[in-house]
């Protein structure tokens, strides 16, 4: 059973397609390869989890493109959302405030 989807070769996050529990080995498939990532937090369905260790300030990539920056160090397998990912888009304050 696959637990997440990686969309692009360059992506540093994947999207959960099932609710993920901390400690779980999450299986996914990319470029014909069977891969796993060990979840270190719970991740709700359709939320993101880190596929690599991210340092504070690192660009976070989905669809092969920047979706924002890491607000803090994010370990591989952790939930990535408004608490640790922010946008620097002009006029868009909503995500950064939270």
């Amino acid at each position: 059973m696959y637990g997440c989807v990686k969309l692009h070769e360059k992506d540093t996050v994947a999207t959960a397609i099932l609710p993920i529990t901390s400690g779980e080995e999450v299986h996914y498939r990319f470029g014909g390869q069977e891969l796993t990532v060990k979840a270190c937090t719970d991740v709700p369905v359709y939320h993101k989890l880190a596929l690599v260790d991210l340092k504070k300030g690192d660009v976070v990539t989905k669809y092969g493109q920047k979706i924002g920056y890491a607000l803090q160090d994010i370990p591989k397998g952790a939930h990535v959302h408004t608490h640790n990912l922010y946008s620097t888009m002009p006029k868009e304050a909503s995500t950064q405030e939270e």
Partner: peptide, 19 residues
Amino acid sequence: RFGNPSPGNKEGGLTTLEE
């Protein structure tokens, strides 16, 4: 632009407007 992604989007897992 403001409040986008909406609270519903965020609950659904979308974090930023770029995404």
